[in-house]
Amino acid sequence: MGLTAGVLAIDAGNSKTDVAVVAPDGTVLATARGEGFRPPAVGLDTAMAALAATVARALAAAGAPAVAHVSACLANADLPVEEQQLTEALETRGTTVEVRNDTFAVLRAGVTEPRGVAVVCGAGINCVGMHPDGRTARFPALGRISGDWGGGWALAEEALWYAARAQDGRGAPTALARALPAHFGLPDMPALIEALHLRRVPSSRRHELTPVLFATAADGDPVARAIVDRQADEVVTMATVALTRLGLLDERTPVLLGGSVLAAGHPRLVDRVRALLADRAPRAVPRIVTAAPVLGAALLGLDRLAAPPESHHRLRAHFGT
């Protein structure tokens, strides 16, 4: 028959999916990793099939055919209608199901109670906030149509834009015009533009230019530094608005910084984020989160089950936090 586990925790990002099966006492019974979760790109049925395969491996390894609660933090669950759609798709997996955007997993992983704000800057950018009374603050995070700017893809695109204009004289000179094509072994921006347009350099590799941007900024290039500074401003703007919506702007509150761009710890970006927060939200306590987001999804599940503090401690110990 097998046992009924407490929580099936899912952290499904654009690039990978992590699943953990957790007992009510916080013991991790099994984990599994699968491919990214991208319903807008591959369709809901295909994305759910891949997710189901990862879940099935984790449940089989745990010897737990059923769970009391599914806590799923999923990329692309940006709107309430999408959360409801994904909840319905997961309802056969547990007695209760709660679907949240994957940014909530980063937030919960970095706090000892469901209270604070998290800004995730990875491929894109998103921000959420939680208050112990159950209130949340969030943004649609659908890209430019919802007022968003930033993340690895946007930074790479911005670097390309400025480099192209520097090359042909429409913009200010910048070392990006040499550094970006050099990354791909190309002589100049016209060669890189042609390679990208004709897909000799796949568009999927554009994200490789984000570290080049940060390296160029670190070397003192004014244009690259301005792009990095703009990213810092966007991070702080989102965090400040979330704090304000939750009435936490004047209270000592954690502001968690996660995602590949922020977790990389680029000094200019992180230092500017801290400086801007000190000016706009002096009570905020910024901290970079490197804990596995699936930990946050599991903690949210234990919250739902009203598990005792020792269960949370045991779970955190498993993940080394």
Rank of each mutant, 00 (worst) to 15 (best):
P211I: 12
P187Y: 03
G185H: 08
V228H: 10
A281W: 07
G129A: 15
L180E: 11
L276C: 08
R268D: 07
A5F: 05
G171M: 14
R138P: 02
F184V: 12
D102S: 05
L269W: 06
V28M: 00
V128Q: 08
E208Q: 15
D233K: 06
G301W: 00
R316T: 00
L213E: 05
G169H: 09
T240F: 09
L269Q: 13
R252W: 02
A89Y: 06
L295M: 05
S311D: 04
G94H: 11
H69V: 11
T46W: 01
G13V: 02
V28R: 02
L302M: 02
T244D: 15
A179S: 13
L256N: 04
T321C: 13
R100F: 01
A217R: 14
H183L: 09
V270C: 12
D25H: 08
A292N: 11
L257W: 07
T46L: 08
V235Y: 06
V19G: 03
C121Q: 13
D250V: 02
L155E: 07
P65T: 08
A62D: 05
I288A: 04
V236Q: 11
T46G: 01
L315R: 00
E310W: 04
A195E: 12
G220A: 03
R38N: 15
A172K: 09
V55P: 09
A60W: 03
G26W: 04
S146H: 05
G320E: 13
L300F: 10
D168H: 14
T112L: 14
L29G: 11
L155R: 05
R178E: 14
D102I: 03
T216K: 07
V285K: 06
R135S: 10
V120D: 03
P40D: 10
A75I: 03
Q84N: 06
L299P: 01
M189A: 01
R287M: 05
A297F: 05
A298F: 02
D250L: 07
T244A: 14
A172W: 04
L198C: 08
S71T: 06
R252L: 12
A77V: 11
A53C: 06
V212A: 04
E98K: 12
G36H: 05
G34L: 12
A56H: 02
P282I: 07
L198F: 14
G150E: 11
A52V: 04
Y162W: 13
L180K: 10
L107D: 13
A179E: 12
N101H: 14
H69P: 05
A9W: 00
G301F: 01
E310F: 07
E35M: 09
V117S: 05
V28C: 01
A56P: 01
A53R: 13
L209F: 08
V255W: 08
A284W: 09
R268W: 01
P282W: 09
G320R: 15
Q231W: 03
L44R: 07
T112S: 15
V22R: 00
R33Q: 15
L79D: 00
P190G: 04
G34A: 10
A224C: 10
R199D: 14
A41D: 15
R200T: 13
C73P: 01
